[in-house]
Amino acid sequence: MRKLIIATLALLLPAVGFAAGGHVELEKADIDLNDQASLQRGAKYYVNYCMACHSLKHMRYSRMADDLGIDDKALRENLLFGDAQPTSMMTNSMRPADGEVWFGTAVPDLTLVTRWRSPDWVYTYLKSFYSDPTRPYGVNNVIFPLVGMPHVLGDLQGVQEAIVEEHAGHEPTIAGVELTQPGSLAPEEYDNMVRDITAFLAYAGEPSQMERRKVGIYVLLFLGLFFIVAFALKKEYWKDVH
Rank of each mutant, 00 (worst) to 15 (best):
R2H: 03
L4N: 07
T8D: 11
T8I: 05
L9C: 08
A10E: 13
A15L: 14
A15F: 14
V16Y: 12
V16T: 14
G17A: 15
V24F: 09
E25C: 00
L26D: 04
I31V: 11
Q36D: 04
A37C: 02
A37H: 06
Q40V: 14
R41F: 06
Y45P: 00
Y45W: 12
V47P: 04
N48K: 13
A52Y: 03
C53K: 03
H54L: 08
H54W: 08
H54R: 07
L56W: 10
K57H: 12
K57I: 11
H58A: 09
H58W: 10
R60V: 13
Y61S: 01
A65D: 09
L75Q: 06
R76I: 09
E77C: 02
E77V: 10
G82Y: 01
G82C: 01
S88W: 05
S93D: 07
R95Y: 06
E100R: 14
V101E: 12
G104R: 02
T105Y: 04
A106K: 12
A106L: 00
V107K: 05
P108R: 06
D109S: 12
L110K: 05
L112N: 15
V113G: 01
R117A: 11
S118T: 15
S128D: 06
F129G: 07
S131H: 11
T134G: 10
T134K: 15
G138I: 04
G138N: 05
G138Y: 04
V139M: 13
I143D: 08
P145C: 04
L146M: 13
Q157N: 13
Q160L: 08
Q160T: 06
A162Q: 10
E166K: 13
H167D: 09
H167I: 13
G169H: 07
H170D: 15
I174G: 01
E178Q: 15
L185P: 01
P187K: 08
E189C: 00
Y190F: 15
N192G: 03
M193W: 01
R195A: 00
R195H: 01
P207L: 05
M210I: 09
E211V: 03
E211R: 10
G216K: 00
G216Q: 01
Y218Q: 05
L221R: 02
F222R: 02
F222H: 03
L223M: 14
L223Y: 09
A230S: 15
A232R: 08
A232E: 11
Y237W: 14
W238R: 14
K239Q: 11
V241F: 13
H242V: 15
